[in-house]
Design a protein around this nucleic acid. Structure first.
Length: 577
RNA sequence: GCGCCUGUAGCUCAGUUGGAUAGAGCAACGGACUUCUAAUCCGUAGGUCGUAGGUUCGAAUCCUAUCAGGCGCGCCA
């Protein structure tokens, strides 16, 4: 509860308001409706019903804190000029002087609202008292959400491209958690099929070659050095035992062993990258539990699957895909689609209300297939979404490092993380919208300069911490947040910073709804820029005690938002640099 | 040929559920440390929003066509 003596208490009855701005938007909507009613009662406006209108934040500060298109929306129905209508509405808004400082009519007929500084200042108390809980929303209503990401085949180490998907999935999960969803993070392991066989053969051939046998390496085999390492490992453990067995007998061991080693490597790489999954879901287990057979049978019974040319086809074209898709080949082997259908059915059966997949953009052709399968299974396909992640161009000083197998060493995620650090890689991966290509320059990411956005943000945080430390050194006593006089914060820079701090919950909501996690880095850079500017121009700690305390609260709130944002990104918020 | 993504300042990109004079950062030039950290700040420039139509009070944003780049179109994953 707000139990201070502030005069705005009637507008903000309790701290259950998670989103200051959204709440204000509602208040303004109501004010506008009642103004409209008044105008109607006095006969100034004849209108049978109020059409829907918006109250939004303008892009630029000079257009006020909120604007509405109400006058423009109803003007055409009244066959009157929007600006005249706007004036009528404006004249019918009275008695909110403690909340609204100015109402302006501008442009084609926008009504712009300028809030009183006090309105914004009050929001600050909320930020500081909620601290790490600031920005947490209830919009998720604790609904279960599954975010599946990375899911790279265990046939080789992760490269930077996987890393980008990994960060996006991880940060998106954090955002959804912050928005109030119950989020599970999952990695789907493709541990059956042709690729696994190729992996096993690759290791087996290397094994033989190392032991001096004359064996030819397959054209499509995995050529990386790690295969040799695994082969040597097997020699250490089993000696030349597999020279006596047939390939067919040896293969299962080679597959399992290789995949196991590689998967462990992947797990370790991700752990070093700050990513922890709730579950590693094995494709193989779907087969072992008979779930694939079961769901194919189920779909067959409902005639969503038919047989043609000795193969089984999913009637995907009946559910929005451009053609039907094979789920079981003529050879009797299932395609990946078959197990994917079983997997997604299983996701829904585990109770997830939203199913989100983060995929490389090269898989986009696969989306309609899965979507149609989900429809065939009878689930609401609106609850299913795929976030496509475009390619990463790894560069060094402007030169593109190709991702070919030969230079594979340099593009491995673990090497890049080791070279430039977890924080920089994570931050860079989140700087672009997932559907644009990402240029990642190793030199830039390592640079400790103004060009490096990671340090820019972290430095802002460190500076804030230092100010707060300095205040302690100066023995400045900060009273209870609710009773502090915030009136001394009068500068336009201060108001601008405070407004941005108060936008944070809206940002969380926007990112959670539109699945655009990258916006968090833009927000951080914007906020940090404002702070650095302010820092250079004004002093927080001064002889003026009231001013000092008010500014300390603002800086503290700023620190809270920056830290909370960095936490979402999984980037450390250093207290000193 | 069909589908998806992208096209905005010299470079890298924001901005797209339609809103007002389209924004940052970098690169370039000049300035600011006796101050709570100069990993910072301040100042100066840059645009037919790929092109052409359409929808309307209003379009970078929506629609159509077209050009350019990337990706995908298998009984591969």
């Amino acid at each position: 509860m707000i139990n201070c003596n502030c005069q705005y208490i009637k507008y903000f009855p309790c701290l259950l308001i998670n989103d200051w701005i959204d709440y204000m938007r509602e208040v303004l909507q109501n004010i506008l409706r009642s103004a409209l009613n008044k105008a109607r009662d006095s006969g100034d406006i004849e209108l049978s019903e109020v059409p829907s209108f918006t109250v939004e934040k303008p892009r630029e500060a000079r257009f006020g804190d909120f604007y509405t298109n109400l006058a423009m929306v109803i003007a055409s129905r009244l066959t009157r000029k929007p600006r005249d209508v706007a004036n009528l509405i404006k004249n019918n808004i009275n008695g909110y002087s403690n909340l609204i400082s100015k109402i302006e009519i501008a442009g084609p007929g926008f009504i712009n609202f300028f809030m009183t500084p006090d309105f914004w200042l009050e929001g600050l108390r909320d930020v500081v008292s909620k601290d790490s809980g600031y920005g947490s929303l209830g919009i998720g209503r604790n609904e279960k959400v599954l975010v599946e990401f990375v899911s790279a085949n265990p046939t080789g180490p992760l490269h930077v491209g996987h890393g980008r998907g990994a960060v996006i999935g991880d940060v998106l999960s954090n955002i959804l958690k912050k928005a109030g969803y119950d989020v599970d993070k999952e990695y789907y392991i493709n541990d059956v099929g042709l690729q696994m066989e190729t992996l096993g053969i690759s290791t087996l051939i290397r094994y033989k070659q190392i032991l001096g046998e004359n064996a030819e390496f397959p054209e499509n085999g995995y050529k990386g050095d790690y295969i040799n390492d695994i082969a040597r490992d097997i020699i250490l453990k089993k000696g030349n035992y597999f020279l006596q067995t047939t390939d067919k007998e040896s293969l299962p061991f080679f597959i399992d062993f290789s995949a196991g080693v590689i998967l462990n490597g992947i797990k370790k790489d991700l752990e070093n990258f700050g990513i922890v999954f709730n579950r590693w879901y094995s494709e193989k287990s779907l087969y072992e539990k008979g779930m694939v057979d079961e769901i194919i049978k189920w779909l067959k019974e409902r005639e969503f699957i038919y047989e043609k040319d000795s193969a089984l086809w999913l009637k995907a074209s009946a559910f929005g895909d451009e053609k039907d898709r094979v789920v079981r080949r003529g050879t009797g082997y299932y395609t990946y689609l078959a197990s994917d259908i079983a997997y997604h059915k299983e996701k829904y059966e585990r109770g997830f209300k939203k199913v989100i997949n983060v995929w490389g953009a090269d898989h986009h052709g696969y989306i309609p297939r899965i979507r149609s399968a989900i429809k065939a299974l009878g689930f609401d396909n609106k609850t299913f979404s795929v976030l496509l992640v475009q390619l990463v161009n790894l560069k060094r000083g402007g030169e593109v490092i190709s991702m070919s197998t030969r230079s594979g060493e340099f593009t491995e995620l673990s090497h890049v993380v080791k070279e430039v650090g977890k924080d920089a890689v994570r931050f860079f991966c989140m700087m672009r919208s997932s559907d644009s290509h990402l240029d990642f320059d190793l030199n830039l990411a390592k640079e400790q300069s103004s060009e490096n956005p990671v340090y820019y943000v972290q430095y802002a945080h460190a500076r804030i911490c230092n100010i707060l430390k300095q205040a302690e050194v100066c023995k400045i006593k900060i009273p209870d947040v609710l009773s502090i006089n915030l009136q001394p914060l009068k500068l336009s820079e201060e108001l601008s910073i405070i407004k941005k701090i108060l936008i944070f919950p809206e940002l969380i909501e926007k990112m959670a709804v539109s699945l655009e996690p990258h916006l968090i880095t833009h927000y951080l850079l914007d906020l940090s820029g404002d702070f650095h500017s302010y820092y250079n121009k004004y002093r927080v700690i001064s002889d003026d005690n009231d001013l000092t305390i008010a500014r300390l609260i603002m800086v503290k709130a700023l620190g809270v938002v920056i830290k909370n944002s960095l936490n979402i990104l999984g980037v450390t918020a250093p207290e000193e640099m």
